[in-house]
Write a protein that binds this DNA or RNA. Structure first.
Lengths: 210, 210
DNA sequence: TAATTTAATGACTTCTGAGTCATTAACTGC
DNA sequence: GCAGTTAATGACTCAGAAGTCATTAAATTA
């Protein structure tokens, strides 16, 4: 039969975010299928049964973990674009900078790698992520690029495609940190990396030289 | 008991590469853990038992699938660097171009996404991939960048980090194709994407304007 | 054509891990 | 302090997938 010996504490409020945080960390590390619910529970300091008090299934937990991190950051970017007044290249660099500091240096940094790895297995979650994060994020960069072209600060270029080229190195930096980085004895300094990228963009995009 | 009704054909020679090809496609699509051996066997047109005639375990099959694609391409890049004589920026662009055409447009295109997703679960395979593909590939780009700096074609820059910035958009293009691309109704044209990237590099890296 | 070898099969075994639920004990109100 | 409520537990069930092997038939040899 059963001998539930140690119900430690009861904290209904704090649980959900503790559980999604533990789940996110392990999903990012091992992938969805290779992560055991027992491990998530252990990491959160609860038992497996507790997970089912707050989430209907492993997949529901996955969705919640993804959604946790993405709510505030895009909105912040939208306000940056709305308020900006100086050179377009500075707007573009601020957006990249903001993405890095608000995602890249937080526990949510692993989400892009997780989405890339699991998109096929969770088309519904991928679609949600695409609509609410990627589409809106691309719109931000697109606005900055359009602005630069319209004001003759940037050379004319196919904006929709350029968006992807501009964001790719930042995404790749994130993804790398959560995948192959362990194999390298010495990893690039993110600061230097971003500086190189933005300086290439300055010289590469702009009509006049800096 | 057993009624093995339909042993179709016997082709000892052709099997291994057929099996790794089927495995690679499914691993790329669904990830290692979420791929069933029955599915791999079905895709290759054999039964599960046949897999074990050629590979000791699912993990052995994984390793073989990864190794299949990477043997020839790096060597080809090394010969390009050795033979090149013109401007360094052209060497750099040829290397990126070659990588795209020799990997990006083949069934092996999914390997980077697969490695990124599974690196943590297979540290040994990741290490192998790092030593034999990434390290050598980075050396190629590093040589092109060093050459440009030494000949005063490129501005001085921290080469080791710049390598990663240069390759990131190409890698990201590949990874995207095998993950989120299904969510977008319209994906960027790879040709346009690479053109933008190389033109940013030309203007961004070089001392004199083109 | 018959005997021998071996590629291939798929039912079976085994094990792992998702999801359940009867039991327990930490809180809450009286 | 006591009764009622509910957060938490962990042993259990069960489905699904990795890996096995006795059986079969295609190919090869005599």
């Amino acid at each position: 039969m059963n001998r539930p010996s140690a119900p430690r504490k009861r904290r209904k409020e704090a649980r959900p975010s503790e559980l999604t945080a533990a789940a996110l960390a392990l999903f990012v590390e091992k992938g969805f299928a290779a992560t055991r619910l027992d491990d998530i529970a252990a990491r959160a300091g609860v038992s497996k049964g507790t997970l089912y008090l707050y989430f209907d299934s492993k997949e529901a937990l996955f969705k919640a973990a993804i959604q946790e991190g993405i709510i505030p950051v895009v909105a912040e970017g939208e306000s940056i674009v709305a308020r900006h007044e100086g050179a377009s290249i500075d707007l573009l660099c601020r957006l990249l900078e903001n993405y890095w500091s608000r995602i890249g240096e937080t526990p949510f940094a692993g989400i892009p790698k997780l989405m890339v790895a699991e998109a096929h297995n969770f088309p519904e979650v991928a679609q949600f992520y695409y609509e609410n994060v990627i589409r809106r994020g691309r719109a931000l960069l697109g606005a900055a690029l359009e602005r630069g072209v319209a004001r003759n600060e940037f050379r004319p270029l196919p904006v929709e495609t350029a968006i992807d080229v501009v964001i790719a190195p930042v995404l790749m930096l994130l993804i790398w940190r959560f995948s192959m980085a362990r194999c390298q004895d010495e990893n690039a300094d993110p600061r230097t990396y971003l500086d190189i990228h933005t300086s290439l963009l300055r010289r590469g995009l702009m009509v006049t030289q800096v």
